[in-house]
Design a binder for these strands. Structure first.
Lengths: 215, 215
DNA sequence: TAGATTGTTAATCGATTAACAATC
DNA sequence: TAGATTGTTAATCGATTAACAATC
């Protein structure tokens, strides 16, 4: 598998690290440096690079400028991609105002909500009535959305987004969504994440107590 | 590896599905049903169950009540676990008010912020000054926190949380955190998630155009 | 040339899936 | 008994890591 999710994610990390190094005045890097920067191993870095056709110089490492340029082309960093938020509850509103996207190649074009009270066309990121969703997606050729609606309506809202042309979503509703073959869904289940953390922390606690008793 | 992150996550999913089935009046399930419910395969379910010592009846499937009970014991569902939010920016505030936690065994005990303006001791989930963080963690024996502070201060804030006794965090800052061996970090990098979705969606688009040209 | 570093091929590892024996 | 389902052992798969040849 050429382009697994994790290898692509690492490419973005490499790029970010390279920009930092460039900013600090560096001109070239070795695979070892890249590895340190993103918390991987040098072999992993070279493997990833070779997978995506990024070549360096035997003994001389990689030219930072050249590498960034190639990554930009590979990752489509040349243009800004508009993304929409559907549902302006707690999570939806947080993402509308999230500053972390500014540095990247994506920006939130608009949010949608069924609650007319939340509509606000003049805000920096406007909130529009849900009825305008389809037209907006089509008119602005939106490909990716953030699904931040209640669990119970998630599937039916997604269906409408798909019908209008959306090809991928970041889903915050704790349900398994039904999607066609060529559609990307990344699920973020915050409760589940916390529970899993809790599980391992508690497991260690129990283990420790056990060991203490034995001692 | 007995308890990988993913197998534990699936246990929580099984439990959730079982509660739904029970609510609908079902008394027993087969591995096939469980698989459908969480989007896995029957073999996967039986493998997970055997890994955690959950046994059924040859030919008779699994008793729902019994299974839930065992999962509760396994996952520590007997008590409520307090969790804190550090940083009350966009993400932090959204999580403070997130309803999705109500159904689970965790609740947000308090939030912390350096901005005195945001302090509010009388809210349902109080926001306290950052200076009270250590005492609060120690007094309430908090083990898990949500780190929703700016990237630049994430590590130093985490260091203070660790010093006070925190053993695991859900990290929203887009940085690699330095932690000791027995410490759990789950990273949620929202920008990265969206970028990766965008990558695959664009990759398909390019591919399609390519194929159209050939045709 | 000797040393350092890349890039590829092979080995390992963990997780998922397949095959099948056990048994209700 | 025959059929259905569990539970385990073996095979497969993908991703990471190790080994090493190429070469600047």
């Amino acid at each position: 598998m050429k382009t697994s999710k994790s290898s692509v994610t690492r490419l973005y990390s490499y790029r970010e690290a390279l920009l930092r190094l460039k900013y600090l005045g560096f001109v070239k890097v070795f695979s070892e440096n890249m590895a340190d920067a993103i918390g991987a191993t040098a072999v992993q870095v070279r493997k990833d690079f070779s997978l995506f056709g990024l070549v360096g110089n035997k003994r001389g490492g990689y030219q930072i400028d050249e590498l960034i340029q190639k990554l930009d082309a590979l990752l489509g960093k040349d243009k800004k991609y508009p993304v929409i938020v559907v549902g302006s509850g707690n999570i939806g509103r947080a993402l509308m105002n999230y500053k972390g996207f500014l540095a990247s190649d994506l920006h939130i074009a608009a949010a949608f909500d069924t609650d007319e009270q939340k509509v606000n066309r003049s805000a920096e990121v406007p909130t529009l009535p849900f009825g305008e969703l389809k037209d907006f997606i089509k008119k602005n050729k939106i490909k990716v959305g953030i699904l931040a609606v209640p669990e119970l309506v998630a599937q039916q809202v997604l269906d409408q987004m798909m019908a209008a042309g959306i090809k991928g979503v970041l889903n915050f509703a704790p349900v398994r969504l039904n999607t066609p073959e060529k559609f990307v869904v990344h699920n973020v289940n915050l409760g589940r994440e916390l529970e899993t953390i809790l599980y391992f922390v508690n497991a260690w606690d129990r283990q420790e107590q056990h060991e203490t008793h034995k001692a």
